[in-house]
Design a binder for these strands. Structure first.
Lengths: 126, 126
DNA sequence: TTTTTGTTCTATACATTATAGAACAGTTTT
DNA sequence: AAAACTGTTCTATAATGTATAGAACAAAAA
């Protein structure tokens, strides 16, 4: 189930793209599945069509879905594929500020690994 | 050394607060050290005084520095202290979207741990 | 044929980011 | 004591990002 918090400081389109990714990780959405139309999902969530559209295009940029014009959005994320070097580099840069924050807060490498493990568990639980 | 990229999509004040945290992790700045005045640092970096001020107040919110009105900003981050439960919870929430992104890109738990380890190395190198 | 699809365009409203200048009241230095 | 420096507070402006809205288009699906 996808939920959106309008009062969050996280932009709606970011919340949506993360929620869709979480659904894929949980297995609620699988390779080949089709996402609802931008108008349909916008109606369900009570947000604007363009907001959903933006989320879809971000997911396309991340190579998680494929948008076929006039048809729909299909999930192409393969959880078992090898991650590309480029993608790995991008992820490292995205992680960096938060790793810094953790280190300066007194966390050690081992504790950071535990944190990551716990976050993974939370995501898979739903 | 602190460097700022005006063309980055990351806001200047965020870049600065991360850079200061990195300097602490590297050991370039230690507990008790005083940060430059907002005007001095703004002059060095070529940014506005209020931008530096915002960075300092964000660091104060994270309990990394202490701002004494009319005096200056002192580093109180103790890299060896225990992290608070509250802080740990916040960090988990901040990590979540990126962990999701990693998982959906095909990364396994072990690979994520390796990524974190590599990021830590990068930070400590400078 | 009608409906639905993503796309594209213009438009508005609001928040965030960044800069700028001025003034204030304490602190430090000279 | 005087001067310089400190963080704070205030108003102001400009650019950008976020979100909504409505309309129209052409292709696909029902």
């Amino acid at each position: 189930m996808i939920t959106i918090d309008p009062n969050s400081d996280v932009p709606l389109y970011m919340q949506l793209r993360t929620q869709i990714m979480e659904a894929i990780v949980r297995g609620d959405l699988s390779n080949g599945d089709t996402l609802p139309s931008v108008r349909a999902l916008a109606g369900d969530l009570g947000v604007n069509m363009h907001t959903v559209n933006k989320s879809y295009h971000e997911l396309e940029l991340k190579e998680i879905i494929e948008i076929v014009p006039k048809k729909g959005a299909v999930i192409i994320a393969n959880k078992n594929k090898d991650i590309s070097k480029n993608r790995l580099e991008t992820l490292s840069e995205e992680f960096r500020p938060f790793v810094v924050e953790a280190l300066v807060s007194g966390m050690k490498e081992k504790e950071l690994h535990e944190l990551v493990t716990n976050v993974i568990k939370k995501i898979q639980e739903g």
